[in-house]
Write a protein that binds this DNA or RNA. Structure first.
Lengths: 114, 114
DNA sequence: TATATATTCATCCATTTGGTTGAATATACC
DNA sequence: GGTATATTCAACCAAATGGATGAATATATA
C-alpha cells in the first residue's frame, strides 16, 4: 500500500533531488555502497563541510541513512523514498486520463444526440 | 530514445515540482485542462502575481506551455518532462543492481575458490 | 596523555526564492 | 476615445540555500 502521498515529505525529496551535487552524491553512493563523508567529499571541488551539509539535506529527505561507527559516519543511499515521486506522477497521470475519458464521453453523447 | 539525461533540465524540473503550490497548480491544470491565469489564481489565498510567478517557473521547466489569445493566457500542463525524473531514477536503480550483481559475483568466486 | 583524524556546529556571506504591492502593457468593450 | 479586464514587469522584503571558514567534539592511536 503506502499509496497516500505526504506532501511535505514529497517536497523535501524533490527539493533534495533538485541539486546536482546531491544527485551526484546519490549516484556515487549507489555505485560504491555505503561510504564515509570524507571519501564522498574527495570527489568534489568543494569543502568537506559543504558536502556534510548536502548529506544532511539528503538525510532529512530520508534519501540516505547514517551509521556511526566510532568517529566514522557511514552514509548509505536509500532509493525507496523516490517511489513517492513516482506515486505522485502516476496520480497526476490517472487524473489526466480521467479527464480525457470524460471528454470522450461528452463527445460520444453529442454524436448520439444528433 | 531520448534516454540521455540533461542535468540542468532535470534540476529545473525537480525544483519546479518541489513546491506544493506548483504541484497543486499542475494537478488543477490536469483536472480542468488549459486554464487562464486568473482562474488558476482564484483557488489560492495568494496574490495573482505570485501565481503568475509560479507559472513562469513551471514554464521555464517546460512543465506547462502558454497559448496567448488576445489578453487571455491559456496555460496547459505538459506531463512528458516528468519522465526525465523517471529516467534518472531508473538509471540510479540500474547502477544499484549492477553493484549488487558484482557483489554476488565476488561472493560466488570466493565460494568456488574454497 | 598528547596528537592526529573524522565529522559536525556556529558564523558569515551572496544569491535565490516566495511572497508582497504598484505601475505598465495589451486587449476587449461601450 | 475612454474604461474595464488580463496579465506581466519592477521593486522590495524576509527567509532559505549553497558556499566558505574556524572552532568544537569525539574517537583513534602513539
Amino acid at each position: 500500500m503506502d499509496e497516500y502521498i505526504n506532501e511535505q515529505k514529497l517536497s523535501s525529496i524533490l527539493k533534495a533531488a533538485s541539486d546536482p551535487t546531491r544527485r551526484s552524491l546519490l549516484t556515487t553512493l549507489v555505485q560504491q555502497g555505503p561510504s564515509r563523508v570524507t571519501e564522498l567529499a574527495r570527489h568534489y571541488d568543494m569543502s568537506l563541510n559543504s558536502i556534510s551539509k548536502h548529506i544532511k539535506v539528503l538525510e532529512a529527505a530520508t534519501l540516505v541513512t547514517r551509521k556511526t561507527i566510532g568517529r566514522v559516519h557511514l552514509i548509505e543511499a536509500q532509493l525507496e523514498p523516490i517511489n513517492q515521486i513516482d506515486n505522485w506522477f502516476k496520480n497526476l497521470r490517472s487524473i489526466w486520463d480521467l479527464r480525457l475519458d470524460d471528454l470522450e464521453t461528452i463527445l460520444n453523447k453529442e454524436i448520439c444526440d444528433d
